[in-house]
Design a protein around this nucleic acid. Structure first.
Lengths: 150, 150
DNA sequence: GCCCCTATTGCAATAGTTTGCAGTAGCGTC
DNA sequence: GACGCTACTGCAAACTATTGCAATAGGGGC
């Protein structure tokens, strides 16, 4: 009997680790537990901080390395935010890029339709296969650009 | 009489600085001179290194702050490379984003047509005004995706 | 249940970038 | 040419992320 089962899409993660000859460790469990409580996005630094809140012994490099592994397994995806910092998208199935408003600092997901058009644009013109989840565009959101032109 | 005039698009930069109440300093001149010799792109770290090659006293923070100012004046634009590090596009008039191949590490400019379609995609769907020069998409280039599917 | 192999961890060092602050020095003015 | 205001610089510290290495500890096999 397991003391605590991981929630929803993470239930079989330990097993997936082991099947690939990787090990399921307390440190990895901690990172996954924090991710399981995370809704959508989190930066590398924020994740480290949350892990540290649960266990002050948390070592950053371990967290980052765990993230690399989780990415390999397809459980998270990383991109770079507007400031160039690591940003992780949690959970598979929700591949999406981000748009970041340079004026108000807001951040949103790029809607599917727009994402498809972006992928199409580069596929058509130069045969480049875009990794949508890694896209972050910077610019001005509707509200800020309206405000600026007012 | 000026001892050395700055080349091509940089000639009136000192004056532009002064007109905006900013000062033209030896440190800024050094950065601009290096940029003037730069073709297209350069990373923050590389620029610091080149400045240091001319003057070993160069302080990184000064270089980065100078870049901020130059960006304000529209003389350079920055984006974030695939690894999240600063990358500067030198010279106005050449606004463009980048695409970076995660497989071979190559990097190319996003062609105009594709850039327009990307801007259009986000303008149409969510009224987001993309700053093209700040876009870096990651994915697989033509050669690498062909190789992968072979 | 114990062993051993090797995947992981902890730690320290490093790289790249940013920020706060006190002292310095452009440059417009007189 | 000197003066003063304040935009810059230099420095040091802090942050985010990465890497190498020796020590540790999963977990499959016996």
């Amino acid at each position: 009997m397991e003391r605590r089962t991981l929630p929803a899409p993470w239930t079989d993660v330990p097993e997936r680790f082991r099947r690939r000859g990787m090990r399921w460790t307390p440190q990895r469990r901690a990172v996954v537990e924090v991710l399981a409580e995370t809704d959508g996005h989190i930066t590398g630094a924020a994740l480290v901080e949350r892990c540290r809140a649960r266990d002050a012994q948390t070592i950053p490099s371990t967290v980052y390395r765990t993230l690399d592994v989780l990415e390999e397994l397809g459980l998270v995806r990383h991109g770079h935010g507007a400031n160039g910092r690591e940003e992780y998208h949690v959970g598979p199935g929700s591949e999406h890029g981000h748009m970041h408003c340079a004026a108000c600092g807001g951040s949103w997901e790029i809607p599917h339709e727009a994402a498809d058009r972006i992928v199409g644009a580069l596929a058509d013109t130069v045969n480049f296969e875009v990794d949508v989840s890694h896209v972050t565009v910077v610019g001005r959101c509707r509200d800020c650009s309206r405000r600026a032109s007012a």
